[in-house]
Every structure is written in C-alpha cells, then in structure tokens.
Computed example of a mutant assay.
Amino acid sequence: MDDATTTKRKRPVIRFNDLPTDILIGIISRLPIKEAARTSILSSHWKKIWCSHVNLEFSFYSMSPRLASTSHDARLRMKMFIERILISNCNALEFLGIVDCGKLTRLSTSHLWNQLKHLHVESCHLLKEIELNLGLTKLGYKGTLIPLSPPGPLLLTNVCMKLQHARSSLGYIFTNLPSTLLHLETLSLQCSELERAILPENHIKFMYLKHLRLQLRHPVTEKKIDLLDFACLLEAAPLLQKFELHMWMPLHHQRYREEAHGELRSLPPQPHAHLRLVHISGFIGMKDQLELSLHILRNSAMIRAMKVDPKPLFALPCISMLSPLEGFQYLDGYEVAIEYLCREDHNNVVDVSEIRREEVETLSVCELVYPDCVRLTRKANSSS
C-alpha cells in the first residue's frame, strides 16, 4: 500500500461563519429572543444576523431588568425598553403583534425593505395613526377609530377591525376605510350603530371582496338606523360569496306587524350572481331586519343557504346587559322568520334556528344564548 491510501483523510472544517446567511437566519430564528440577541457580540457579521429573527416577542420582563415597583423605576424600565427595541432594522420580520402598549402614539410599518405581512394592534389607547406597509396582507386592529395611512395601493387581502367609539359601520366602510384596498378579499368589522350613515352617491367598489362579516350593536333604545341601507353592500361587492350579519338590539324594539308598522318596503331588483352563503343572527323580527333579509333572499340567484338565528351570537355585549325578557324577542324573531322568510323561500335555502315558547318560559337568557357553557359550568359545579 502506498502512503496515499494509508493516510487518513481529514474532513474539512465547517465554521458557522462560512454558512450561507439564510441558513444562519434559520438557526437564529429557532433560538429564544434573549439567546438570539446574545449572538450579536460574536462579530460584526453576527451583530446584524439576529435582526433577521422571523418571530420576535418583546415584553418588559424579557427586555429590561427586574426593578422595584416605584414610579421612578417604572419610568426607567420604560426608557430602557424603548432604547433596546431593533424593529425598523428587523427586515425579515413577517408578523408583528402589539397589545396594550399604553405609550404608543404612532405606528409606521412603511420601511422600504420591510417584509411585514401580518400586523395585529390591540388596545393601544394613545395610538393616533397607523402608517401601513405596502406589502402587508393581513391587518387586525382593536381600538378607537384612527386613520390608516397607506402610502399607495396595498396588497391587503384580510382586514379585521373591532372599533370603539365608531358610530356607523357603513360610514366607516365607505368613508374611513382606505380606498387603496384594491385587493381586499375578507373584511370583518365590529362596531356600534349609533347613527344612520350618509352614504356618498358614488360609493367605492370592493371588486375582490368575497367574505364580509359585520358585528353590529345598537345599544340605544331610540331607533336611529335603517338596516335596509345595508342592501347597498350587494352592489358594492359584486363578487361577494359569503355574508355574515350579526346583530344585537335592546329590548325595546318590536317585531314587525303590518297593522302597526305598515307595508314592507322593497328596493328595485339588484341581482347578485355570486352570493352563496348568508348567516344572520340577532334576528328579532324588526321591520327593517325583515326587509333586508327579504331583499337578500330575492336577489341572490346562486344562494345555497341562508341561516337565520334569532339569538345574538357574535355581537353580544357583556352578559349582564341582557334582559331576562330578551328570550321573548328571540321567539318573536323565530315566528316572523317562519311567517315571512320561509314563505318567500322558493328554493328551500332558509334555515331558521328554532326557539320554542317552553324554552323561553323556563330557561334563562344565558342558557338560551350559551347552552354549552351553562352545561359545562353545571357539570363542573356538580362534580366539585
């Protein structure tokens, strides 16, 4: 044997610094945020690598030392927290969630190299404006009504807004929602209905909108809105496939009776060729609720299912605001839906959730609205 065959081959030495940057980023992204940050002291190259961590979570407890609970220490911790957070430099960040950030007044995600796709902002009470990134595709927001300032046409396809102090959902959709949302496919909006919206004559079109979910609360006893106004949404979203309308109305609103409320109104025909699924909850049989439901049923040529539930499923306030007599409203809604909607249902698509009088007379409102939760609570109490 020659020396070449007997000599033990040496394996090449692979160093972390020799790895491609995308592999280093993948390694860093699997480390906890504190450990990832510590790698920045290794070299000038590593100092920038950790900024590409794709999943960042910042809190006072992870990013600032534990101090006493005095007001001076709280201010010091706030100052250190602000100084230590690298977000404008986190170019690979795809999801950012900000919750209960009480000192935040303005948020800008429009950095030129930003890769942010999903932004969620909730309960930042001093926030006055959000400047959106052009590449953003999903936005979730809960808080007061503030302007959204996009620098140009957005790629947003999914928007979920839970607005406090807004006075009209239609007013927000056609006035406050940026007209640059050209690609919007899913819109979920929750707000109170405190006034009737004055709609522009030429309202904007949502040409790609496929799923619209509205959660409306009308917390005042005086009737100030007209739900038949919402028929304009069929025209504004010609490709809409699924429409959800979840409502809660106070006890004082009455079910429709022709002798008391006059004949039902009808709008000119407005055929819609794509709407297939409709879900309405909180249907208590008011005149404008019935008129809107009939308009949707008559004009949706491709509808496959219209589910109507008298109970308020998703737009509920706190349970303490529900009156013990609201169950009778649900019974009114069921009877009106059976009498008018089912009579108009020529394609057998209407499905009305049944409310029986004996249930209303024997069960609490909580048991009617949250039967599963009540059963679980009783089971837990009995086992304990």
Rank of each mutant, 00 (worst) to 15 (best):
Q254I: 08
F81L: 10
R11Y: 02
M1W: 04
M1V: 06
E195K: 09
H279T: 12
L134R: 03
W113H: 11
R9V: 14
T70P: 01
I355W: 03
F16V: 13
P371W: 03
W248R: 06
L275P: 00
S64E: 09
S44M: 09
E201R: 02
Y172L: 06
G171Q: 07
S192W: 08
P200M: 10
L214T: 00
T180H: 09
L251F: 08
L136D: 00
K117T: 15
H272P: 15
E358H: 11
L187H: 00
F60R: 10
H346Q: 15
L107E: 01
I338V: 15
Y141D: 05
S52H: 13
L294S: 10
S62I: 15
I225V: 13
I225C: 06
P153T: 11
G262S: 06
N114D: 14
L187N: 00
V360A: 02
E258L: 10
L132N: 03
N347F: 04
H211G: 04
S52K: 05
S168M: 11
K79H: 07
E122L: 01
M63W: 10
H203W: 10
L107I: 07
C191D: 06
G262E: 11
K205E: 12
H274D: 12
R213M: 13
I355S: 01
K117M: 15
L227S: 00
L267Q: 09
C191T: 09
A166P: 03
I33M: 06
T21N: 04
S364Y: 08
R77Y: 02
L290W: 02
Q329E: 14
S382R: 13
N299K: 09
I23Y: 01
G285E: 03
R106V: 12
W50F: 05
K142L: 11
L132S: 07
L56R: 02
